[in-house]
Design a protein around this nucleic acid. Structure first.
Length: 202
DNA sequence: ACTGCGATGTCCT
DNA sequence: GGACATCGCAGTT
């Protein structure tokens, strides 16, 4: 395995938009046991700001599902959607604020053979992880990680590997109706693992 | 390349 | 009973 330096949970206590931006380029790592790891560079995120954000699951209420969003920074929020899929979020800000960052796409770094196996019908490597549920399928992430902490040893986030430079951009969030005009999607420009979208060239 | 649309289970009103 | 932070496939250009 490569060397990954886990980020402290304090990082996620910051402002959700800033956290979503600064997660770009960082590494998400899943410990598969037996010294096996899956790792990918985060290339696309979205911010969900809590009770005042119409698109957020915590909008104006706490429900059984959104309860996790109010946990302490660095808690994992995984939810099930469209009858088939999971989406992976990192809870941000202090306990009691229902905000999170959605991981929308990553670029495989380690364990790509396992990702190909988990996505057995996918032909092009950039389709392995260029979408929030594609990432979950490739990494084998399901509801069992909901409410877990990034400070544990199952899934964690690590500092960027090198001091590489990249350009980032923002756009509207994808696939939502309420709060659709808010520019809370962030991505690395020209990275082939970012989801395909007309908002990408601005 | 792009467009439209069906599948599917859970949560919420 | 409706909505849903998606994906993959089929059809078209």
């Amino acid at each position: 395995m490569r060397k990954y330096n886990k980020i402290d949970d304090k990082f996620f206590e910051n402002d959700t938009i800033e956290t979503a931006k600064s997660l770009l380029g960082k590494i998400i790592v899943k410990n598969e046991g037996k010294n096996k790891y899956l790792a990918g560079k985060i290339v696309e995120t979205e911010a969900y700001l809590g009770e005042n954000d119409p698109a957020c699951h915590a909008y104006q209420k706490t429900t059984g599902r959104s309860r996790v969003l109010y946990e302490e920074a660095g808690t994992i929020y995984v939810y099930f959607i469209y009858g088939n899929y999971y989406c992976f979020n990192v809870v941000t800000e202090r306990k009691g604020i229902g905000a999170a960052v959605l991981i929308r796409a990553v670029e495989p770094i380690e364990g790509i053979e396992t990702m190909r196996k988990n996505r057995y019908n996918v032909k092009k490597d950039f389709d392995l992880t260029n979408g929030p549920s594609k990432f979950c399928m490739a990494f084998g992430i399901g509801r069992e990680f909901n409410e877990k902490k990034l400070s544990g040893d199952g899934i964690y986030i690590a500092a960027a590997e090198s001091k590489e430079r990249f350009e980032t951009a923002a756009s509207k969030r994808i696939g939502i109706v309420k709060g659709e005009d808010l520019p809370y999607r962030f991505f690395i420009k020209n990275n082939p693992y970012v989801t395909k979208h007309k908002f990408n060239n601005i």
